[in-house]
Amino acid sequence: MAAPMRTLCCSVVRLSSRQFSTTCGARAGQEWRKEHGLARSGSEYGPLTDLPDWSFADGRPAPLLKGQLRRKQEREVLSRRIVMLSSEVDRGMEVWSEKREEAKRLEEHKKSLLLKPKGKLLMKKKI
């Protein structure tokens, strides 16, 4: 008697118009958050992750949690790297402009070493 019941259930499932969803649930709202300038997920950054969960009754701040300390350290490392790379770019721009000025001076020096007009040609240029 169990066999006809199983056949009946299988045929109902096959004839059903409903289908199961196979999309990933982890991306829920990710595109909307990106479009509105927010983090991919609610736990990446923002007041809910960066601020302490509680404080003492006398107003002292609560000690930072491990994750908050880790994120703070990662931000410090990133900011130091940004400053270092920015200074490298500035120094590179200075070196590039110095090389360009040196090339101009060298070109002017080469022009000054060329033969100069004499006699009647010199008089024609002045007039």
Rank of each mutant, 00 (worst) to 15 (best):
M1Q: 10
A2R: 02
A3C: 09
M5E: 14
R6F: 01
T7S: 04
L8I: 02
C9H: 03
S11D: 12
S11T: 08
V12E: 08
V12G: 03
V12L: 11
V12Q: 05
V12R: 07
V13C: 08
R14I: 02
S16H: 06
S17T: 13
R18K: 15
Q19F: 04
Q19S: 11
Q19H: 09
F20S: 13
F20E: 14
F20I: 12
T23L: 10
T23A: 12
C24I: 08
C24S: 13
C24P: 05
C24K: 09
G25F: 06
A26C: 09
R27G: 11
G29C: 00
Q30V: 15
Q30E: 15
W32H: 14
R33L: 05
K34F: 07
E35G: 05
H36S: 01
H36W: 01
A39M: 01
S41W: 05
G42P: 03
S43L: 06
S43W: 04
E44V: 09
Y45P: 01
Y45A: 07
G46R: 00
P47V: 03
L48I: 02
D50H: 08
L51N: 10
P52L: 00
D53P: 05
F56V: 00
F56K: 07
G59F: 01
P61M: 02
L65W: 10
G67Q: 10
Q68M: 01
Q68Y: 01
Q68H: 03
L69H: 02
R70A: 15
R70W: 12
R71Y: 01
K72E: 14
K72Q: 15
K72S: 12
Q73F: 05
V77A: 14
L78W: 12
L78K: 15
S79H: 12
I82P: 00
S87Y: 03
E88Q: 12
E88I: 02
V89C: 10
V89P: 01
R91I: 03
G92R: 04
M93Q: 08
E94Y: 00
V95N: 01
V95W: 01
W96T: 08
W96G: 09
W96S: 13
W96A: 15
R100Y: 07
A103I: 06
A103D: 10
L106K: 15
E108Y: 08
H109S: 14
H109I: 11
K110S: 14
K111N: 15
S112G: 08
S112A: 14
S112M: 09
L113E: 02
L113P: 00
L114H: 02
L115K: 10
L115G: 05
K116Q: 14
K116I: 02
K116D: 02
P117G: 03
K120A: 10
L121T: 05
L122Y: 04
L122Q: 02
L122E: 04
M123P: 00
M123K: 13
K124A: 12
K124Q: 14
K125W: 03
K125L: 10
I127C: 11
